[in-house]
């Protein structure tokens, strides 16, 4: 046979202009996403550095008053309100979302599933501003009815409950996915040793889906931390450090929304403080995401 470097034309590499173009577009969109993230962190960091030249980290993290006009920059009132609203949100979203998910994944017939899922999707499609007014005009009066005059018109509990309702579809659908992903043969194994449906669900299916459930909880938590519109409308305007969830208090996001909407001069310390808050919030959600990833990896079970 003749030695030659030429490849038989039937086997020769072809040029795929369409494939190449699409590959380039796909790569470009990926790069854009990463680029935007880096740009955001960069801008947050840049302004925050200026802020922290004026305000010490120590003051930022250890004092309990946030009054920019008198140069008091303690993050705690804002952080505390954020934690309170998020906590109420989780208290509502986790049990309701979890039980909805268990019902959908394990108990509901296909007919019922087909009826409930669209309702959840509608709930997920409601704009958050609607939830804000729902909190103000429905949840707050309801709380006042139950707990009396102790409940202020603007309060963190009401906003938190609305966040919880907002998160129910997210929590329910993600946990349902995690439960449905548990392979059938594990359920069969449990039934075969004489387990009831409840024992199979709580003893085998839920523990097997633990990684997905934990990831969902952390995702919901970081979503609750970042929720802005509901708290801006219903939690109150004005930073206040209070452990009473029936009192008005401003969250980090609510404060940023309110201040940024005003006529804040650029390069003022107030303006830069917003970036410092945003950077801090970014670190919190970033940390939650990292935690979620590592926990879900640790609990991840590999099925053959």
């Amino acid at each position: 046979m003749k030695q030659t470097n030429a490849v038989d034309p039937k086997l020769c590499k072809r040029i795929h202009p369409v494939n190449r173009t699409i590959e380039t577009i796909l790569a470009a969109t990926g790069i854009i996403t990463i680029g935007v993230t880096i740009a955001i962190v960069f801008i947050l960091g840049e302004e925050s550095i200026i802020f922290f030249k004026h305000v010490s980290l120590r003051q930022f993290f250890t004092t309990f008053e946030w009054q920019p006009h008198i140069e008091k920059f303690g993050i705690w009132p804002l952080l505390n309100a954020t934690i309170t609203t998020s906590l109420f949100g989780m208290l509502v979203a986790l049990p309701i979302g979890f039980f909805t998910a268990v019902f959908l994944a394990e108990y509901a017939s296909n007919t019922i599933k087909r009826k409930i899922k669209p309702v959840l999707e509608i709930l997920a499609g409601i704009p958050t501003v609607v939830f804000g007014y729902f909190a103000l005009n429905f949840i707050t009066p309801f709380l006042q009815l139950v707990f009396g005059k102790a409940v202020s018109v603007y309060n963190t509990a009401s906003a938190g409950i609305a966040i919880g309702i907002l998160l129910v579809p997210l929590v329910a659908s993600l946990i349902e996915e995690a439960l449905s992903a548990v392979p059938r043969h594990l359920r069969e194994a449990a039934y075969a040793v004489g387990a009831t449906k409840l024992e199979v669900t709580l003893g085998i299916v839920v523990p097997s889906a633990l990684s997905g459930i934990i990831a969902t909880i952390l995702l919901a938590l970081s979503r609750a931390f970042g929720e802005t519109m509901i708290v801006a409308i219903a939690a109150g305007a004005g930073p206040a450090f209070t452990l009473n969830p029936f009192k008005s208090a401003e969250t980090m996001t609510g404060h940023m929304a309110r201040i940024a909407g005003g006529d804040l001069p650029y390069d003022s310390i107030d303006y830069q403080s917003l970036f410092a808050i945003a950077l801090f919030l970014f670190f919190i959600t970033f940390f939650l995401n990292l935690l979620g990833r590592s926990i879900s990896k640790r609990y991840m079970e590999h099925y053959e």
């Binding site: 043969h185 594990l186 194994a189 075969a192 523990p207 097997s208 053959e304």
Partner: peptide, 9 residues
Amino acid sequence: FQKPNPFAK
């Protein structure tokens, strides 16, 4: 069963 199916325990 056909495929070994121990619990995730």
